[in-house]
Structures are given as structure tokens and as C-alpha cells.
Amino acid sequence: MDRAGIPIYLVRWAGAQVLTALGRIGGMAILLSVTARWVYKAIFTPKARFDVEGLTVQMVRVGVKSVGVVALVQIFIGVILALQMTPPLEPFGQEGMVSNIIGVAGFRMLGPIITAVVLSGFAGASIAAELGTMVVSEEIEAMEAIALNPIRYLVVPRILATFVMTILLTIVADWMIAVGGWVTSRLVLGPESYVGYWVRMREQLRYRDFVTGLIQAGVFGILISLIACHEGLKVTGGAEGVGRATTKTVVYSIVAIVIAACICTMIFYAFEL
């Protein structure tokens, strides 16, 4: 015990946590910079061609397979928003404003964030498990041994695919939230809400609402795939390690998504976007 009365092990523990976190962030930063270099090379040098086939496979795996779940979840988000937001508006006779609220909340935040959370469970976990299994079965080492760079052949297509598909899925998600809200108004709430629902939403929304949402979606997509690749590639200790990596991927992704969303919102707010 030191004089301040803080047990030394607590300080040590906190210090160790900070160090691991910094180490992890550093590792991901390196991974991201190497990935960026390969993408740059693929675009600007004729020799290092893009693996279009690999990219397509990954886009299908990330996007097409999760589109159903994303749509389903987002419809329910729309339903929830409509049901929760209408009662507080009633005393003011502004039930119709629910469509404006759903529009802003959905397009700016809930569309991208919920899509990203679903994808971190869907794509993130499966990428981490896949790469982790490849580490365990010596496939990554084998790739290096035959002079193929694992970052170029495995990480680059996964990050690009997740980046693109998070954005595309968010577009779907935005509309699903709006549809969920509309269906609820129609079936449960009443004509004050649904008459002119789409017109009001259209009047409320600016392009920047839509675009800032998609920018965030892109950031989330990179974060999810980066975390998944990083955790997957540093798996040790067999099948158990693969399990740990998938759990970590999902947890870290969700934390990272929320923090990134907060930072993005602050920036958009500061620049009045």
C-alpha cells in the first residue's frame, strides 16, 4: 500500500490495461497502414493487380448473407421509434412530426450504427474465426513461405468488402427504418401520423443527413474488419484461441463503433453538418 491509499496492484492493473490497449491500437494502426499501401499499389501501379474474384467472394459473404438480418432488425427499430416517439408528441398535437424524427434518427445514427453492430456479429466474428483457423492450421505461415503476403491476399479484400458492404447495407437499413415507422403509423397510430408521412420526411431530410450517416457507416465498416483481421491473425493456442478471438472481435467492435459514432457526431456538430 502506498501513502495515497491506492493499492499498488490496482495501479499496476490499470497500467497493464492501458498498455495492452495501446499495443492493440498500435497493431491495428500498422495493419491499416499496410492495407492502405496495398490498396494504393493495386490502384496506382499496373503490376500489383487487384484480386477482383477474392473481393467479390468477400462482398457476398459480408453483405449478401447479412442483408436479411439487417433489414429485419431495422424494420423493428422503425416500429420501436414510431411507438416511442408518438405519445410525447400527442400533447402538442404534433403526432405527424414522428416521421421527421424517424428520418433524422434513422438516417443519421440508427441506420449505420445498428447495421454495424449486426455486421460485427455477422461478418466480424466470421472473419476473425476464419483467419484464426488459418493461423492455427499453419495456412498463414504457408502463405508467407510461398512468398504471398497475407495482408495483401487476406486482409485487403476483407477490409474493402466490409467497408463497401457496410455502406450499402446502411442504405437498405435507412429505408427499412422509415418503412417500419410508416407501417406502424398506418396500422397502430392513426392518420395524424401517416398522412403525409413521406412528404414530411422528405422535407425534413437534407442530403447531409444521409451522407453523414454513410460516412459513419464507412468508418464502422473499416473498424469492424480491422479489429476482426487483427484479432484473427494474432490467434494463439488452437481452437480455444479462435473462440476467444471471435468474442473479443464482437466486444471490441461494438465499443469501437459507439466511440467512433460519438467522435463523428462531435465533428459533424462542430462543422454544423
Binding site: E138, E139, A142, M143, E144, A145, I146, A147
Partner: peptide, 23 residues
Amino acid sequence: SEDQLNAVRKRFGILFQSGALFN
């Protein structure tokens, strides 16, 4: 460097314990 190392890697082969085929 990595490029030089890759040039050397093309001149040897390795059989891993599990075969390490790309699944």
C-alpha cells in the same frame, strides 16, 4: 527486405506438419 526475402522464398519449399493446405 520483404521483397528480397520473397525472392529467396521462391527458391525453397516447406512441408508443414499439418500440410497447411488452403482450405
